[in-house]
Structures are given as C-alpha cells and as structure tokens.
Nucleic acid binder design. Sequence first.
DNA 1: CCGAAACTGCTACAAACGTAATCAATTTAC
DNA 2: GTAAATTGATTACGTTTGTAGCAGTTTCGG
Lengths: 122, 122
Amino acid sequence: MKISDAEWEVMRIVWNKEPRTAAEVIQELSEPQGWNHRTIRTMLGRLVEKGALDYQVAGHKYLYSAAIEQEACVRVRSESFLSKVFGGDTSALVAHFVEDADLSPDQIKTLRRLLSSKKRSK
Amino acid sequence: MKISDAEWEVMRIVWNKEPRTAAEVIQELSEPQGWNHRTIRTMLGRLVEKGALDYQVAGHKYLYSAAIEQEACVRVRSESFLSKVFGGDTSALVAHFVEDADLSPDQIKTLRRLLSSKKRSK
DNA sequence: CCGAAACTGCTACAAACGTAATCAATTTAC
DNA sequence: GTAAATTGATTACGTTTGTAGCAGTTTCGG
C-alpha cells in the first residue's frame, strides 16, 4: 500500500494521537498546510479505502485510528529513500544528515553512544 | 522541479557517469527495473522537458547529461523526507538508520569522528 | 422547532506518473 | 541495397494525486 506525501501528513497526525475525529485532523493540518477541509476529508477517505486508517462510528462522526503501524511505514519508506537517494549506502546517508543538521551536544552524545554500542554488538 | 521515483533512477545513472546515450541508460536500467526501453526513453524525454537533463546531438543520437546537480537534488529530497517521515527530527532519523544498518567498524569510526567534529564546531 | 453548520459519501477534474505503442527518419547488418 | 533494428517525437491510456464541490443527513444554537 502506497501512502502519498500529502496522505503521510494525515497519518502523522493520527499516529501522534489516536483516535482522531476529522475535525481534529483538519484543525491540525488546514492552517499549516493551507489545505481546504474538503481536501483533508478526501484524504481521510482514501486512507480508509487503502486500509491505512480504520474508523469507529461515534454518533454521527467517525473516530479515525491507524490501521498500520507507524514503525513499519517508516521502515518501508526509509528503505526506499535509502536505496533511491543514497544508493543503499547508509553511511553516506547518515553523514549527509549529520553534516546538515543542527544537533545539540546531547543529541550528538547519544548518537555517538549508539554507534559505539553498534560496534560492540558485532 | 519534481523528479518522480522512476525518473530518479534514470538521473542516478546519468549522474554516475556523464554523458550517456539512451542506449546506455537503457542497458543499465531495463534489466534490473524490468522496464521496457520505451518507458526509459519516455523518462529521458520528460527529464529533458523538466530541465533535469540536457543533451547534445551526436549524429543521430543524443548524449544526455545532468542539468541539475545531484548534491542539490539529494538535499531537497532529503529535507522533505526528514520532515515528512521523521517530523524534522534529524537525530531520530539518524538513530533509525544506524540501528537498522549493517555498518563496518570503519564506517562507525568515521561517523563517530564526524559527530565529534560537529560538537567541536559549535 | 428551525435554520445553519458540520458530517460523511459521491463526484469532478486536471496534472503527474507509469508504462508503453506508433511513426517517421535513419542507420546498420547482411 | 534492402530489410531489420534503432532513435527520437508524438500519442495513448489507466491510475494516482492534489484539490476540491455538491448532496443528503444530522446535529446544535437559539
């Protein structure tokens, strides 16, 4: 199942806190994305069609919740990104983001520790 | 200018070595991707239209070369990926890829060093 | 209790995409 | 030298995506 870029924004809102009414999703997205509420409703509908969202009927409204796990989706998308943009070279990818990022000393420390533990585990 | 997923594969071939004839690109892609040569020719055409590729006429053939830099495209795509999939949290992104990857001790060392230099530069 | 607002379902529609086929010119292989 | 293969140009076509509008129903404010 392929989730488009725009749809991904909707999924992020729902993953972030479940369940959600359409109104909530609209509230979170219409301003920042400049989307008409109908656009968002369409995406909610399509995501249900695609099986990415479930809903429960609550009175006259729907309560949407994710039908697929964020972790799994992130993994799939990440893999495809890695292979397409960095030719599968994780090390190049990581270097690119690290160079470009504005990381706090704490974050740096954590990442260095993660790398160390990675080494040890081999 | 937006380069689609399939087009990206073509761009990668051209970036990798320039210039390229259509036949060369076709040779590199048709097998691994299972694409008909016509499909690839279509993409070459569209990429020229989009301004992502240039070509020189060499006799009856074209010699394609990139009109946009890989570095810049990678940056754009990476930014969008970062914000869409990891909500802009580089640290989370890096952690994800590091955890998932199979890095050699050398790569790990290099990355750790990169992180250190990052810290110092602040 | 009634009109406005909100909800979901259906419909719309152009642009982009993936995936080619056809065509005309040309080059190449025999 | 002629038939086959190649090349780029043009055309095709179903699907997905972005971006909504309209219809019919329900609910809420007054």
